[in-house]
Design a protein around this nucleic acid. Structure first.
Lengths: 159, 159
DNA sequence: TATTGTTATACTCTATAACTATA
DNA sequence: TATAGTTATAGAGTATAACAATA
């Protein structure tokens, strides 16, 4: 990985980003572990909430993940009664995905966990610094053409 | 993963960090791929440069990686003539690791790649913004007790 | 024939623990 | 007995492609 010893070089910023990003992802995974969810599960719950009735293929395309992986994750969530597969009468090949009441409730807990996770992660910054950081990161994310809300790690989803 | 749709909440910052961190790591891996190195290889090259003569166990402890993984990575680097295993005469169980001339040269290329990678990643920011970002990230990293130069991803080193 | 969802299989990666040599 | 390094092996995880149902 990049050298991190040469002050505020561009390489040092990139290394810090990679380091903190991994740390943030790992801490978030810990936060939702008690809910018996992985980040992948949480990502699917969130997307189905945003796009109710979406198909598994659409989900896979949006996440950049393999359809066969999405199947097993949706299996998990359905078996726990968090998500429903409804047959689309117009095209019976498709499964229209919907959150159940339990799924909506659990997603609320996931969002609460994400918020307290974020607060803990940025506790060293005052509100102005935090907004400043958000703006700078948003600037880079836009420039790098990252899709809002789509973590590249979704491409290797884990159960 | 965290919701990224609620403005500049703490959760949004955490999500952006995770997203950008993964992106930065992936881009860096692409940069050094032509050198036939993975980030894990690069990390070992760098640590051996910083602590010449260190043992493989010490390396594994510093990186938080399994000793058996370090073996295969050092094997790769040794076979390519980038690193030397010297027997420690005082304790013949230990291998003292040293970079060869070729290893030192390749590490220079890795550092150049890291620098241009960082420049590309932060091209949307002016120098002042970049320094600002570095300071904010450094602040969080220190608060979260991250070890400078040690990427948490080293713990699952890949060849 | 093409597409959705699913399942099966082969492959890779990882972790554990056994092994050797030295202490 | 304990530790460094190595190797072997079993388990988990992943990607590919085969498959059934529907269009």
């Amino acid at each position: 990985m990049a050298d991190s010893t040469d002050g505020h070089s561009a390489a040092a910023v990139a290394f810090l980003l990679a380091q903190l990003g991994e740390h943030a992802a790992a801490k978030f995974a810990e936060r939702i572990h008690p809910l018996q969810l992985t980040p992948a599960h949480a990502g699917i719950l969130r997307l189905v909430a945003v796009q109710p009735g979406c198909s598994q293929q659409a989900l896979a395309r949006t996440l950049g993940a393999l359809p066969s992986k999405v199947v097993t994750l949706v299996d998990d969530l359905q078996q726990r009664g968090l998500i429903e597969r409804r047959r689309n009468p117009d095209d019976r090949r498709l499964h229209a995905l919907h959150l159940t009441t339990a799924g909506t409730e659990l997603l609320r807990k996931v969002r609460a966990a994400a918020e307290s996770h974020g607060a803990d992660l940025t506790r060293a910054l005052d509100p102005q610094q935090r907004d400043n950081l958000a703006a700078l990161l948003g600037c880079i994310a836009a420039d790098q053409h990252l899709h809002p809300g789509i973590h590249p790690g979704y491409q290797r989803l884990r159960r």
